[in-house]
Simulated assay, not measured.
Amino acid sequence: MTMRESGALANGGMPKATIDTSRPHPARMYNYWLGGKDNFAADRESADLIAKAFPQIRTAVQENRRFLRRAVAFMAAEVGLKQFLDIGTGFPASPNVHEVAQKIIPASRVVYVDNDPMVVSHARGLMTSSPQGTTTCIQADLRAPDTILAAPAVRAAIDLTKPVGLLLIAVLHFLDDNESPYDLVARLGNALPSGSYIALSHATLDPLPEDVIEQLTALAGTGGDQGTFRPRTRVDVARFVDGLDLIDPGVVPIVRWRPDRSPQAAASVADAAMYGSMARII
């Protein structure tokens, strides 16, 4: 069974979209783990399987949100960035990127990108910009970076000749190696001017016990019922920002990335099981 969204998606230049409710989608699973209601049976079934293998998953997604908010606050308050491109944004979960950024710099301009039309519909309905700034959302996929960068809504909201904060939060682990994830990130980074920043978070199995690793590995696939899930080691995650100017403390567990800043991290490395980093484009 599918549910179709009527009409073309405004501002993104995208065709009518189909929501496949029979297959789990990461954004809807994430919404379920955060206690949201924007999910379907397939999403809940898949999410529960993962939670059975890794009961801390809800803590992990909460810590990921905290990392996102610390990263955006750093970019806005300490760097002065006024433009943000959030790819793989997921369902709105306040405070969102524009709320954090515009609280610091009211004129901040934020573009959200997600490949799920249900996410885009909710984002447009719920995420309202400050009067001085801009907030918009388009349907597009990380696998097509040129399409994202050329989208009229992106061009209207973001001046790509000025520094941009690129956010790739908990999205890269849904790309398998054969989808050229490192090249995709490099293409996005190369399109941004010097002084731009990239912040990313990425799932890892590094701190987990062997039995949990075995269960999660068994659930991971490359297009099967559970979808692609490709956790990576610290060395592999660091490759995404290779050649850029790493911001202290570098590539670390998300709970150790400036944990004293608000909102403070509240879990262990194993509970979060994600790496985070930020780097400046030279």
Results as ranks from 00 to 15, higher is better:
Asn64Pro: 03
Ile281Arg: 15
Arg232Thr: 02
Lys37Tyr: 01
Ala123Pro: 00
Glu5His: 14
Arg124Gly: 13
Phe91Ser: 06
Thr134Asn: 08
Gln102Glu: 08
Gly125Lys: 05
Ala238Ser: 15
Gly189Gln: 13
Leu126Met: 14
Leu184Ala: 01
Leu188Ala: 07
Ser94Asn: 05
His122Glu: 01
Asn31His: 04
Thr222Glu: 12
Tyr197Met: 04
Gly195His: 09
Gly189Ala: 07
Met127Gln: 14
Ala42Gln: 04
Pro231Ser: 01
Phe74Ser: 02
Val154Phe: 11
Ser268Gly: 15
Pro117Trp: 01
Gly195Thr: 10
Pro163Asp: 14
Glu63Trp: 06
Thr59Arg: 11
Glu99Asn: 05
Leu205Gly: 00
Met274Cys: 12
Ala267Arg: 08
Val79Met: 11
Ala144Lys: 14
Asp141Pro: 09
Pro15Ser: 09
Met3Tyr: 13
Lys52Phe: 02
Phe240Arg: 09
Glu63Asn: 12
His173Met: 08
Ser268His: 01
Pro106Leu: 02
Thr2His: 05
Val79Gln: 09
Val119Gly: 02
Ala8Cys: 08
Leu142Gln: 01
Ala150Met: 11
Pro207Phe: 07
Asn31Tyr: 05
Leu167Asp: 01
Pro263Trp: 08
Lys37Met: 05
Arg280Pro: 01
Ile104Asp: 07
Phe240Trp: 04
Pro207Asn: 06
Ala76Lys: 09
Gly276Asp: 10
Thr135Arg: 03
Ala77Tyr: 00
Asp38Leu: 01
Thr59Cys: 11
Asp38Val: 03
Ala199Met: 10
Thr161Cys: 06
Gln215Ala: 15
Leu175Gly: 13
Pro209Val: 04
Pro117Gln: 03
Phe91Leu: 15
Asn31Val: 05
Ile19Val: 15
Pro249Arg: 00
Val97Leu: 04
Val171Arg: 01
Leu244Thr: 03
His25Ala: 12
Asp183Arg: 15
Thr228Tyr: 00
Gly221His: 06
Thr2Gly: 02
Ile158Glu: 10
Ala199Tyr: 01
Gly7Lys: 10
Ala270Lys: 07
Arg143Cys: 03
Val212Pro: 04
Gly90Arg: 00
Ala151Ile: 09
Ala53Thr: 11
Phe229Cys: 09
Pro163Tyr: 09
Ala273Ser: 15
Ser180Cys: 06
Ala107Val: 07
Ala218Tyr: 02
Gly133Ala: 06
Leu167Asn: 03
Thr222Lys: 15
Asn115Ser: 09
Pro253His: 11
Ser277Met: 13
Pro152Tyr: 06
